[in-house]
């Protein structure tokens, strides 16, 4: 199996200071990778750099598209990056209002990416949008409602539908459960796990919640001060942490 994403020695600087540095890993199709660490450890910087939202200062990021063609993401022309972002990637933000268009209907939010890919048939767009609302457990009757009328959990599920409708192969998620109540979070995690299995997408998710990582991620990167200090199978990292910082992090989990 060849990786969908290969990251080598990636760094992002803010002036003289490194936001993240010396990050290397391979991501395989269908794999869920969590990036954990405390605030300021560089995990969101890394995610945005990998997704091309921030320009990297060092390193190489290679993405293999559906045809097996390799793209060097750090030197890619902006137009090509946008095309990949529309067709092959998704990006789910922590605050749904950053990832949704709040002043248009739920249906329009889901259809937008399909339309960007050239689908114009109104009836088909509406049918697909309705199917996806149902998939994320929102009644298709809410198709014409605006996201502002939805609860936080529903908005986050709508964001998932909006991203997955074009069948991307790689989805970036930045603290997607961060703003959700615990009870809503459990349902969201279950949905996410099912969709990952059904669609075979690869996911890179930033979270500060090790419990979320345990339930969802095959693999985990632990970041501290901009560097990856430990990487491996999620259950191995949580049950047998090797690095002093990871041991501290794991021993600090509250037991419910």
């Amino acid at each position: 199996m060849t990786p969908i994403l290969s990251v080598r020695q990636v760094a992002k600087r803010y002036g003289q200071r490194y936001g993240c540095r010396e990050v290397s890993f391979d991501l395989y199709p269908g794999e869920v990778l969590c990036i954990v660490g405390e605030s300021g450890s560089g995990k969101s910087t890394l995610l945005s750099t990998l997704a091309g939202k921030l320009a990297a200062d060092e390193g190489e990021v290679t993405f293999r598209d559906v045809n097996g063609t390799e793209h060097d993401l750090l030197t890619l022309a902006e137009a090509d990056r946008r095309r990949l972002a529309r067709t092959e990637w998704g990006f789910v933000t922590q605050h749904a209002r950053d990832g949704l268009r709040m002043n248009v209907s739920a249906g329009a939010n889901v259809s937008e990416r399909l339309m960007a890919l050239g689908q114009r048939h109104y009836g088909e767009l509406r049918a697909t949008a309705g199917e996806w609302l149902e998939k994320v457990e929102i009644s298709a009757e809410r198709l014409d409602d605006r996201p502002s009328q939805f609860s936080g959990g529903m908005q986050q599920r709508l964001q998932i539908a909006r991203n997955l409708v074009t069948k991307p192969r790689l989805v970036f998620m930045d603290e997607p459960t961060g703003g959700l109540d615990v009870s809503v979070q459990a349902r969201f995690l279950d949905l996410l796990r099912r969709l990952v299995h059904e669609t075979g997408i690869a996911v890179i998710m930033v979270t500060h919640d090790l419990g979320v990582a345990r339930l969802l991620a095959h693999r985990t990167l632990v970041m501290q001060q901009g560097r990856v200090v430990e990487a491996g199978l999620t259950d191995q990292i949580l049950d047998d942490p090797q690095h002093p910082y990871t041991q501290l992090l794991v021993s600090s989990i509250l037991q419910a």
Partner: peptide, 9 residues
């Protein structure tokens, strides 16, 4: 047992 499962390194 956990080493056999690769849960422990």
């Amino acid at each position: 047992l956990k080493a056999l499962y690769a849960n422990y390194l």
